[in-house]
């Protein structure tokens, strides 16, 4: 009810000028882009933001040469198992983390440059039937994997040379974990969403499962993107890939939900609905959250951007004759938005 009362009125139309085109990058070798991202890279005493593109069999690192011009620095070829996604690792440098697999993630690898051997390398971090993975601050990686009998949730501490220093097992919930998000400002707190549409909270230091809180039946298959604690409440940004359009609130792509971890009760704080469009079935496909900004690819082939705290769509990149948008990712540090097409074209926007 609270959420419904606070449901925002959609603006007359999103302001496209809030996204400013900066540059284009074209991966000519890539016939089917699967992911794009950014990584901090230090070379010759200079630390800069570089772009990483991934197609099924290769991951490429791009450096800015001149304004609007990108050059491929290196390509890691991963021919045995297809690349599924790039896993952002906050506050790392010279390190790219990727998930590989067929239908689901089978292994996680680190791609890195070794100054000792002056060569680009890759190393295996984890194998299994991996359902969800997240990179955390301080060189940590958490993943959930399933066997026929049980679910394993594990945190791996990564070393700068691409190895694993330490492993901590976290108590698994009964339901399969579908996504993780670190609780900003609380180094030892982690949240996850489950296949049963609950939000769970862990203590990363002890591995304890602290709380399981149901999200509600209105928005099934919620995926957590971001979490922070304020005034005793746990605020979680969720996306709803399976939400149905309703008359009262449209089709919610993202919601901010406040949980009271003491009681397990929750209240919707803000909806971010799909922007007005033609009256045909439109859905959220996949998205990314940075700070208070959400971006998502829609089934129409457009990318929409929202101010999640105001529940307002602030920009739309329509699909154009060159092709539908397939990927939308925020650059590290809020440096802008990357929008990618399957043909390997990536556009960078300032937001």
């Amino acid at each position: 009810d609270v959420a419904e009362q606070l449901s925002p009125v959609l603006p007359a139309g999103p302001r496209e000028e809030s996204l400013q085109f900066v540059s284009e990058l074209k991966d000519a070798w890539c016939s089917c882009a699967v992911d794009v991202g950014t990584v901090w890279w230090a070379a010759a005493g200079c630390r800069e933001l570089r772009v990483v593109t991934a197609c099924e069999s290769a991951v490429s690192l791009w450096e800015p040469l001149a304004p609007g011009c990108w050059a491929r620095v290196y390509t890691w070829h991963l021919r045995e198992i297809p690349v599924i996604q790039i896993i952002p690792l906050p506050d790392t440098c010279n390190l790219v983390c990727v998930a590989l697999g067929e239908l689901e993630i089978g292994e996680i690898r680190l791609l890195l440059y070794s100054s000792e051997t002056d060569s680009f390398e890759h190393s295996l971090v984890k194998t299994g039937n991996i359902k969800a993975v997240v990179g955390l601050k301080d060189w940590r990686l958490v993943s959930s994997s399933r066997t026929m009998q049980e679910q394993q949730v594990e945190m791996v501490s990564l070393s700068e040379t691409g190895g694993s220093k330490d492993r901590q097992t976290l108590m698994p919930p009964e339901e399969t974990v579908t996504a993780f998000a670190e609780v900003e400002g609380m180094r030892e707190a982690l949240v996850g969403t489950t296949a049963g549409n609950s939000v769970v909270v862990w203590n990363l230091k002890t591995g304890q499962l602290l709380r399981k809180m149901h999200v509600g039946y209105s928005y099934p298959a919620s995926i957590c993107h971001r979490a922070y604690s304020d005034s005793g409440l746990l605020f979680v940004v969720l996306s709803h890939p399976h939400a149905k359009e309703s008359e009262s609130c449209g089709s919610p792509a993202f919601r901010v939900v406040a949980f009271n971890p003491r009681t397990g009760r929750s209240a919707g704080v803000m909806f971010s609905c799909l922007p007005p469009g033609p009256p045909c079935p439109r859905r959220y496909l996949e998205g990314d959250v940075w700070d208070t900004a959400g971006a998502a690819v829609l089934t129409s082939g457009a990318v929409a951007v929202w101010d999640l705290l105001r529940g307002r769509c602030t920009a739309v990149l329509p699909p154009d004759p060159a092709g539908h948008w397939a990927l939308a990712r925020w650059a590290a540090g809020g440096a802008g938005l990357l929008a990618g097409r399957r043909n390997g074209t990536v556009h960078l926007y300032r937001y």
Binding site: V2, M186, E188, A189, V201, N203, T206, Q208, L209, L210, R211, S229, S231, G232, L233, L234, A258, F259, N260, P261, R262, T263, R265, S266, A267, V269
Partner: peptide, 23 residues
């Protein structure tokens, strides 16, 4: 969100739940 909707709120929820949860 009011306290009546969400129940009693604690600023130290993480420490309290860690002390109460099974190890």
């Amino acid at each position: 969100c009011s306290e009546s909707d969400l129940g009693p709120i604690s600023l130290n929820w993480f420490e309290e739940l860690s002390a109460e949860a099974p190890p």
